[in-house]
Amino acid sequence: MGTTYSKEEILAQQLQTAFEHLITEVVRKDTVFAFATKEQVSSILLYAKEKLGYISFVHLSCVDWLESGEFELVYIIWSPETKINLFVKTRLDRENPSMENTDMIWRQINTYQREIREMFGVEFPGFVGEKEFILEDWEDAPPMRRDFDTLEYVNDTFFEREGREDKQDVRERIAKRSGEEIPDFAKKYSRE
C-alpha cells in the first residue's frame, strides 16, 4: 500500500497544491513553515482560514535581517482541529518596507501592525490605526531596528548619574575582599 502521511505533511501538500512556487517545510511535530512571497500572504491566510480551518490567529512578528537587507514578517496561525501552528513567512525589502494590510482577515492583526509600524517602520498602506501606539513624540529612527544605536540614543537623551562614568569592574576586588573566587562561567561576562 501507499505510504501514510503525517498531518503536517498533508498540510504542506495542501498548501503546495493551492499555491504555485510555495516552499513549505515541516519543521517538527505540529509546526509547519510556509515561505511565501509578499503578494501571496493574504491569500494564504485567507485560504488557510476559510478552507483548512486555521481560524485562530496567534501572532504577527517582525525580524530584522540586517545582513541581507530584509525584514521578515511572520504570521502564526493555528487550527484547533489539527493542532498545527502554521508559520507564514515573507521577506520585505529593507529600504521602504511596505506590506499589504491584512487586518480584515483577523481584526487583531491591526494591533500587531501598529506595533510593527512603530517599532520597525514597516508601512501597511490603507490601514486605519492611530499613528502613536507605545512610543509618544518619537522623532528618531524606529527603535527596534538593529541599526538603531540604543546606547548612543540613551546617552544623548537621558542623564547619567555623576560619579559612575568609569564603570569599573569591581567584582574581582569584592571577591578578593570576601575571600571568594569568581566561578568560571561568570568570567566571560567581564566588561573588559
Binding site: I134, L135, D140, P143, F148, T150, L151, Y153, V154, T157, F158, F159, E160, R161, R164
Partner: peptide, 19 residues
C-alpha cells in the same frame, strides 16, 4: 529611579528621576 537600574540602556525609560 536612581540610575535606571536594569533599564539603564532602554530607549524609552528615564534614568534619573531627580532631574
Amino acid at each position: 529611579t536612581i540610575n535606571g537600574g536594569m533599564y539603564w540602556d532602554s530607549y524609552n525609560t528615564i534614568k534619573l528621576l531627580d532631574k
